[in-house]
Computed example of a mutant assay.
Amino acid sequence: MKFSKLGSSNIDVSRVCLGSMTWGLQNSQQEANQQIDFALSKGINFIDTAELYPVPPSGEKYGLTETYIGNWINANQTKRKDIILASKIAGAGLPYIRNGGIITGEAVIQSVDASLKRLQTDYIDLYQLHWPNRTSPHFSKHRPNKINFTNVDRQQESAQMLEILQALKLCMDAGKIRHCGLSDDTTWGINEYLKLSEQYALPKMVAIQNEFNLLHNKDWPYLIENCVHEDIAFLPWSPLAGGMLSGKYLNGARPEGSRWTMAQRNGLFRATEQCDLAIQQYAKIAADAGITTAQLALNWCDNVDGVTSTIIGATSLNQLEENIAAFDLTLSEQTLSAVDQVIKTYPAPF
């Protein structure tokens, strides 16, 4: 397993990060335990979760994924020091999480304490803001004029960011979190937090996780260049585009028990004809290379310049083994060239 520095922190994380959002819905406690144990046996030391999980989110299941991880930690207390544990505070919009309110300083402190209790640990290595208070161009809102930037109250947003950073500092001073980061944010969001951190001597954001994959690579080049030069770890989530890049949803297929058979908070916005056409071509490229389509997508993601660690997930050990093995592959120039041609043909298929 290869490792990278987590931004400006002193933490080395595996190039593969074990995602957990299926634990508690599609996966049982026993299966979650098996995935953690298997990942650690393969050299993975980085686990990502969130108070929101499992996904699709619900008030009934809220916090259950963290609880599963906490149960594993409680049963394996000597191994806590061997993992880099990341979690996230949910943003506004869900009535069963702080009445759907925005992220405030008070919310940060309450959520950190609640996550620590569920995780049965004294500290979280990386605590992230799951999405910003303002609307950001994610979840199919990245096309021109899908959201309105000019109507945003910049001063208000900045004041909220400052309050959040001050609360994060309190949590860090108390030893409850080691580092902080972002998720589903933008270049402006990164830089505003950096500016406030420097101006007020507050913690620096060390990482950002955004969706990034063969079907959705809008963060290249501008946001990733910003991350590289500002020493911010870039952590792609959904490198398989919600499972699409495994090929299992081609031609309208909905395998029993798969995520797309469940109600999705943002709908099946990735399910477009253009995505199907692109995936069909990626499947052929993968077959010609003697690997699976999922492995092609994961290896490509890992080798994008500026990527720190790719967040993967699985609902079975067989899937997890296949996905982890992808990071040991070396794609030929011919394969990479073929992939590049598909990206040119379908630069933004959803």
Score class of each variant (00 low, 15 high):
Met1Gln: 10
Leu6Asn: 07
Ser8Gln: 12
Ser9Lys: 15
Asn10Ser: 11
Asp12Lys: 07
Asp12Cys: 10
Val13Glu: 07
Ser14Val: 01
Gln34Pro: 04
Gln34Thr: 12
Ala39Asn: 01
Leu52Asp: 04
Tyr53Leu: 03
Val55Asp: 03
Gly63Leu: 02
Thr65Ile: 02
Gly70His: 14
Gly70Asp: 14
Gln77Asp: 12
Leu94Gln: 15
Asn99Gly: 11
Ile103Trp: 02
Glu106Gly: 12
Ser111Pro: 09
Val112Ala: 00
Tyr123Ile: 10
Tyr127Asn: 05
Trp131Asn: 06
Trp131Pro: 03
Pro137Lys: 00
Lys141Asn: 13
Asn145Val: 02
Val152Gly: 03
Gln155Val: 06
Gln160Thr: 02
Met161Ile: 12
Leu162Ile: 09
Glu163Asn: 14
Gln166Gly: 05
Met172His: 07
Arg178Phe: 03
Ser183Lys: 05
Thr187Ser: 14
Tyr193Trp: 11
Lys195Arg: 13
Ser197Gly: 14
Glu198His: 13
Lys204Gln: 11
Ala207Gly: 04
Ala207Cys: 09
Asn213Leu: 04
Asn213Cys: 07
Phe234Ala: 00
Pro236Ala: 00
Leu245Cys: 01
Pro255Phe: 11
Gln264Arg: 09
Ala278Glu: 14
Ile279Ser: 01
Ala283Pro: 01
Ala287Glu: 14
Gly290Ala: 04
Gln295Ala: 07
Gln295Lys: 05
Asn299Gly: 00
Trp300Met: 02
Ile311Gln: 13
Gly313Cys: 06
Thr315Trp: 10
Glu321Ser: 15
Glu321Cys: 08
Asn323Phe: 08
Ala326Phe: 07
Asp328Phe: 10
Glu333Thr: 10
Thr345Phe: 09
Ala348Thr: 15
